[in-house]
């Protein structure tokens, strides 16, 4: 599925880049050129990418690893998550009474 989308994307893109500014260049080169030139001549984009990267680092490295472990992975045995959740949901009625 992923490959299909990826291929379709690049194919559609190529049809349109094709025959425009880079008539003679190859298909992959034209796609590469779009991104390469784009990234190289960014101005505001550089600031935004810096912010995005810092943000992604905080989200995926700091928050995910240290503060947001997968509760079921940590507490239930692999393949027995349904038993774990069943026990949690059945016992919760009693726990709430306390």
């Amino acid at each position: 599925m992923l490959f299909f989308w990826c291929f379709l994307d690049i194919f559609v893109l190529s049809l349109h880049i094709n025959g425009y500014t880079m008539k003679k260049a190859g298909f992959w080169h034209r796609v590469f050129d779009l991104y390469y030139d784009g990234f190289r001549s960014m101005t505001l984009g550089k600031v935004l990418w810096t912010v995005i990267l810092i943000k992604l680092f905080i989200i995926f490295v700091v928050l995910k690893v240290f503060f947001f472990p997968d509760f079921l992975k940590e507490n239930a045995r692999e393949g027995e998550e349904s038993d774990f959740v069943a026990t949690e949901l059945i016992n919760r009625v009693e726990e709430l009474k306390d």
């Binding site: 989308w5 559609v12 893109l13 349109h16 500014t21 880079m22 050129d33 991104y35 784009g38 990234f39």
Partner: peptide, 17 residues
Amino acid sequence: FMESTFVAVMFFGWKKV
């Protein structure tokens, strides 16, 4: 895929497409 492709064309593609 939609966003990464089309956002890139929108920002980088003025002179390319």
